[in-house]
Design a protein around this nucleic acid. Structure first.
Lengths: 213, 213
DNA sequence: TTATTTTTGTGATTTTTATCACGAAATTTG
DNA sequence: CAAATTTCGTGATAAAAATCACAAAAATAA
């Protein structure tokens, strides 16, 4: 269903898709039925033209004189984003940040299913966090052998990041959601890495407020 | 010292600066003294030309036939990023994510000083998290009146995001580091918002692994 | 029903971003 | 010390991304 029209989708477009989904989802929950590209654009602070051009990478979802049906477009974008694959994810590192994700992050809203949490700390192993029994990191390889897993979430100390990455790759994951503040190396494994670098974000903010002064 | 050369620095360049800093900092800590744009580029997976072009927005930091002195360039970029302003920050919302930041995030490494933490939960107020005495959110306005604060960190529930934003703006912050999953509105206040949208990041990963399948 | 308005999807254009390529300057080698 | 090599900074070029503009289609109004 995806990419029915053109060739490769640019990174710029890919990065906007989640926001389209998020915005449409909010309208959907508010019960709004239809929206034009210009209304959607002004609510997002981008041009109508950009929205139409972006969507044209994937197909024709609108109707002249009417606009877009919000429920339909929301569903199409969910589909494009792969939210209906119901990917499985495991979390490595049940420290503060890992716990915050376990407790607060609504994985189901992104189509993901969190299936297990691991840690190296004996004091944590066996405890329950938000319904997840924390497993020993020693059992990770075995777990991955018996449970096909799409994504590994790295919330371990940076010193462990590359080692854990290697185990995840060997275990056959497709992607790694990396919260450690280092670039991890996946070699030619073909595994996709998506990093959340808190410090990069804060430093960008630092630049922007300095610039204005 | 910044922007000695050209006009406006593009967003693309701004987003790369923190990574330059992070990479140079790692080399600096390893005791490496000098590096060429091509060596830096291949270590970062970008072109030498892009690095030289990016840096040229801010000045001339290299030397023909030699390359860049790592300690010097690291310092220059820290300066460009505003890391020497020692901006102050307060954290609103001492739940799981807030606690993770309080405990794990090295604010000092980005030049920031965390000065206070707030929460609305009476059970949390008065407790100490990583050396910070959690203050009542009721005292926020008063705090901001008496303590000039550069940045507010939003780790509150999304339902409180806009309300807290309004208080931060009224209190005179320059920037908001937004971890809530909504777009906050700062009107014409001139306050800079930098958002960390976990779900956007995970959905981008979802798209990328779907695309390969 | 017919005219007017709205709005899409897309080719063309403009703007932005990244890469190329080379002179100039400094280092390193012989 | 001179020749060869390295490497920067930048103007020119290429590629990518965003915007414009309009025909076509559908909705709405008269």
């Amino acid at each position: 269903m995806q990419q029915v029209k053109k060739g490769k989708v640019s990174n710029a477009v890919i990065r906007r898709l989640p926001r389209y989904y998020r915005t449409l989802d909010a309208f959907y929950r508010d019960g709004i039925v239809r929206i034009s590209s210009s209304a959607l654009g002004s609510s997002m602070g981008i041009t109508a033209s950009q929205i139409r051009q972006d969507l044209s990478c994937f197909g024709e979802f609108g109707q002249q004189g009417y606009g877009y049906n919000i429920a339909d477009l929301r569903r199409e974008i969910a589909d494009i984003l792969g939210m209906n694959h119901h990917y499985s994810a495991i979390l490595l590192g049940s420290g503060n940040l890992g716990r915050a994700l376990l407790r607060n992050f609504r994985f189901a809203k992104t189509g993901f299913t969190l299936t297990a949490a691991f840690d190296a700390d004996p004091a944590l192993i066996g405890t329950s966090i938000s319904g997840f029994n924390v497993r020993s990191i020693e059992t990770l390889d075995e777990y991955l052998k018996t449970h096909s897993t799409s994504v590994g979430i790295l919330t371990v100390p940076k010193s462990e990041a590359q080692n854990m990455t290697n185990h995840l790759i060997a275990g056959g994951v497709k992607g790694i959601w990396n919260f450690t503040n280092v670039e991890i190396d996946v070699g030619d494994s073909g595994v996709t890495v998506e990093s959340v670098h808190f410090s990069d974000s804060l430093l960008a903010l630092s630049y922007l407020i300095s610039e204005k002064a």
